[in-house]
Design a protein around this nucleic acid. Sequence first.
DNA 1: AATATGGATATTGGATACAGAATACATTAT
DNA 2: ATAATGTATTCTGTATCCAATATCCATATT
Lengths: 210, 210
Amino acid sequence: MKPIAKQSTRDQVIASLRKAIFNGDLKDGEELIQEEIAKKLNVSRMPVREAFYALEREGLLITNQNRRVTVKEFTVDDINDHYDIRAMMEGEAAARASQTEIDVQELKEIQQDIEIAVAEKNVNDYIITNEHFHRVIWKSAKSARLLSFLDQMWNGLPPHLAEMVEDQMSKSVAEHNEIIKAIISKNEEQARIAMVNHVRRSKKDFLENY
Amino acid sequence: MKPIAKQSTRDQVIASLRKAIFNGDLKDGEELIQEEIAKKLNVSRMPVREAFYALEREGLLITNQNRRVTVKEFTVDDINDHYDIRAMMEGEAAARASQTEIDVQELKEIQQDIEIAVAEKNVNDYIITNEHFHRVIWKSAKSARLLSFLDQMWNGLPPHLAEMVEDQMSKSVAEHNEIIKAIISKNEEQARIAMVNHVRRSKKDFLENY
DNA sequence: AATATGGATATTGGATACAGAATACATTAT
DNA sequence: ATAATGTATTCTGTATCCAATATCCATATT
């Protein structure tokens, strides 16, 4: 038996809003009204307010003084910036992970799950398992700051903007294998480079489909 | 005439709490009660709640489910981590800044102000001008993500833990000059190295006085 | 007709009130 | 006496209420 993961209303609202933004149900630049969202989600305005605030800090919403919040519009520059910084930080995480007793077996197993998802063209499974892969590396880097920032970035850009095309997924698989190889051989700089390349290539594909 | 910078109660509470933590008025591990803080600051619980939430995301407070928030206790590992990640990010910022049309004149002027503060042994002025110096570089790096993360880090560790000793301030001045030199010569890697060294040395001094 | 002014409306920010969860304490049973 | 259970208290989370502010629209003024 596992402990029950209680979720506050606020966190549920955050999840709902994030999902809606990622789905495209809430479009870029759209104005959100506390009461409307509250009514739709059948909660009071209070948790919605706190959710707005949280998502503003995450960079997904923009709030102006006493004015409605709007869904952040991402420019090409924003996306470039996002991926460049992410590449640096994920690279650092991979480099650090390669120097620790990271559970390579776990990584390999996740990678197999990813390959299954890709073979089945199951985009949803791909997204979940891919995130898992990255998170194992982040965790092994053993840096609270790095983890927190990577977390913010992972949630910080609506992925719906780029469709997960088949082509992209298989490229990803190959790149993950490069990362695993570098980690196994405990080659710090190779791990960094492999990860940076992986993220940079994602950026390119993202922008091409944008 | 400048526009009046209205500040929400929430933001004022955030500022008060941060200051209290940095001063040591709120000690590591201390439990905070929403209503107590609200009463002390003569506001309602609501802005206090949101301030708690914001400071939790900043890493200064820890909140447990339905339980009081506590002031984060920083271990030596946390401090090492903090400075290491900051070194990486500030290094990146300096490297980027060196490749842009950064206002070197402004940097030099700030540096002069820092030198005055150091000569006068005015710790408060030193803290303000030093932050200014760093922020100019961050801004020139032209990365919203980097800026946001550096901002979080700058506010993320209570500086009261280490006294600003005279010795440290003068070392800082010399290091800043190295950074300026590298930026003037538009030497990207040199700028990065100079900044990384600067932050790493700060860490050492911080830990020695800890 | 164009611009400014004043008031109505919409919406947010903050205070208060109420409900639910966690802890501490007392009481009971073994 | 010790452990388990029930109860009271404290504090947090959510809802509702009130006040302040911004926007919108109608009207007046030049």
